[in-house]
Design a protein around this nucleic acid. Sequence first.
DNA 1: TTATCTGCAAACATTTTGCAGCGAG
DNA 2: CTCGCTGCAAAATGTTTGCAGATAA
Lengths: 144, 144
Amino acid sequence: MATEARRAIGERSTRQRTAVAAVLQEVDDFRSAQDLHQMLRRKGERVGLATVYRSLRAMADAGDIDILVTADGESLYRRCGQGAGHHHHLVCRGCGLTIEISAPAVERWASTVAVDHGFTDAQHTLDIFGTCQDCVDQEAAQAR
Amino acid sequence: MATEARRAIGERSTRQRTAVAAVLQEVDDFRSAQDLHQMLRRKGERVGLATVYRSLRAMADAGDIDILVTADGESLYRRCGQGAGHHHHLVCRGCGLTIEISAPAVERWASTVAVDHGFTDAQHTLDIFGTCQDCVDQEAAQAR
DNA sequence: TTATCTGCAAACATTTTGCAGCGAG
DNA sequence: CTCGCTGCAAAATGTTTGCAGATAA
């Protein structure tokens, strides 16, 4: 679970792999593997669920997509700004709208905190969840 | 899934509930529900796994413990500084050593980011993972 | 040709839930 | 006495894996 060699072997270009990459390209927010699988079926693409998982894992390992784990343990995937490096997300709990955020100051702070406590090889997770304006409006409309 | 009334009903004091609270008191780092269940068994306390989950959920709802979701979707629990309010964690990947962290500046930043984008009811997750000095030393020793 | 990928279903791990009985207040 | 809590086992969920056959290179 600790030190893991990161060798990007395999990487063959198949119809399924391409299809998964394609649906990820179509949406701007985080989707679950099962969601993506459904989207593929609806598009007529015949891809096994296991293959979706395998493809997503490969893409994540290669750093091509972001993974976000919800509070109930489900993994959500999203294509991210190509090689834009490290960034965080502001996610709407209602509609999934996602905004990428950069915060150099916070990066520096996190790094400092780790070093101050003698920690090395530090990484961090930082995500903000809230309700976007549109969803607030919709909730208000429903309550009426 | 959005607006949830927070009424802390129930809360009866039972042997099992007390036992769960007790093991949480014994350790300083994050443990999984299954871990805690094992610890109880080893202590001779006879508590069902389901009850451990139910107790943990109740304590979490009441704000008495922290929950942290690992990258592979497992929930870890830990008693937290009593009513110390919102804080974050610096966790060692090797031994689980956990240090509580306060960062008012980051809190303010997160809040500002949310508001700037029209988000309301904003919450955030922020955890730093790294390898502590002791674990670095141990790894070095093993590599030898 | 051949190593990798795919599909399917079974396996897994974690967490939740239904229900009969127990027990705190 | 009552209602919430507990235990057990079954169910639900999300994800991984074994294996035979398909397929890119």
